[in-house]
Design a protein around this nucleic acid. Structure first.
Ligand SMILES: [Mn+2]
Ligand SMILES: [Mn+2]
Ligand SMILES: [Zn+2]
Ligand SMILES: [Zn+2]
Lengths: 135, 135
DNA sequence: CGCTAAACGCAAATCACTTGCAATTCGCGC
DNA sequence: GCGCGAATTGCAAGTGATTTGCGTTTAGCG
C-alpha cells in the first residue's frame, strides 16, 4: 500500500489506512457505513475525509465501487471483487455468483461490438428465488 | 393509458399526459430533461410534478427507469426497452445491443440460482471500441 | 353543475456528496 | 532529530438531485 501511494506522490496517513481497513473488513460498504465503522474507534475522522480517501484509493487501484441499488455506490477491496452481484428488486437481498457465469455474454459483446465489459461495476438486477415464488 | 390509471383510482391529468408524451419522445431521459422538454410548450409545469408522475407512471407500468451511469436514473417508455445499454466508462457513450445477446447468461442465472434477471435495469458497463484502441 | 379525493405548484427540507480554507502532518533532505 | 513544503485533514458552507408539507386547484363520478 505504502508503495502504491508513494509512486504517485501520495502519503500514507492514518486516516487513509483506516479507510482501507474498513473497506476490507466490511465488503459492500457505503461511505457512510465506512465512516460509522471507523468512528467506533476513531470518532474524529471526518466524513469528507472518507470520501476523499475512497477516491484516492480507487485511483490507486486498491478499492473500487459498484452499484447495487437505485442510489449511491458501495465500495470493495480490489482483490475481493471476484463475483457478480445479484440484487433482488423486491426484497433487496444481494446474492453472489462467479464471474465466469457471464463469460459467454462478455465474449459475445467483445466479438460483436468490441465492447470490453466489466460485469462487476453494476449489479445484475432481478428477482430472487424467494420473491419469485411468493408473488 | 386512461384505463391503466383508472383501475387504480388514478386520474389522467394534462401534466401526467405530458410527462408520458415526453418520455416517449425522448428515450433515455432524466427527470430534468423531461421537465425541460415539457417547459418548451408548458412552462408552468413544476419539476416536482414531473418526479411524482414518473413515479406514478412507473407503478402503473407505462414507463420504467434504468441506470446508465454513476448518478441518477433515466426514463424509458415501457414498450421501448428492448435493448441492452452498453455504457463506456471512459467516454460516456451509450451503445445498444439486442437483449438476446444476454440470453444464455440470463438462463444460466435462472437455472443455477433461480434468479430472474432484468438485464435492462442496469446498464452493461465497460469500455467501447474507440476507447479500447486509444489507451 | 357540485363534491371530494387526487393532483398541482411552490417553497422548504433532505440526501448524498463536494469544495474552500485555515490548520495540521507526512516524509524527504539536511 | 529538525525543518520545511506539499499533501491531507477537519470543519463549515455549498451543490445538485430528489422529496415532502401544505394550501389551492381540478378530474371525474354523481
Ligand atoms: Mn433503479
Ligand atoms: Mn460507478
Ligand atoms: Zn428477493
Ligand atoms: Zn468510450
Amino acid at each position: 500500500m505504502r508503495d502504491e501511494l508513494r509512486e504517485r506522490g501520495l502519503r500514507l496517513t492514518p486516516q487513509r489506512e483506516l479507510v482501507l481497513t474498513a473497506v476490507r473488513a466490511l465488503g459492500h460498504a457505503t461511505p457512510e457505513d465506512i465512516a460509522e465503522y471507523i468512528h467506533r474507534t476513531h470518532p474524529s475522522i471526518n466524513l469528507s475525509t472518507v470520501y476523499r480517501n475512497l477516491e484516492t484509493l480507487e485511483n490507486v487501484g486498491l478499492v473500487l465501487h459498484t452499484h447495487l441499488g437505485h442510489g449511491g455506490a458501495t465500495y470493495h477491496a480490489a482483490e475481493e471483487v471476484n463475483h457478480l452481484h445479484l440484487v433482488c428488486g423486491k426484497c433487496g437481498s444481494v446474492g453472489e455468483a462467479p464471474i465466469e457465469t457471464a463469460a459467454t455474454f462478455v465474449n459475445a459483446l467483445a466479438d460483436d461490438y468490441g465492447f470490453k465489459t466489466d460485469v462487476t461495476h453494476f449489479a445484475v438486477y432481478g428477482k430472487c428465488t424467494k420473491c419469485s415464488e411468493e408473488s
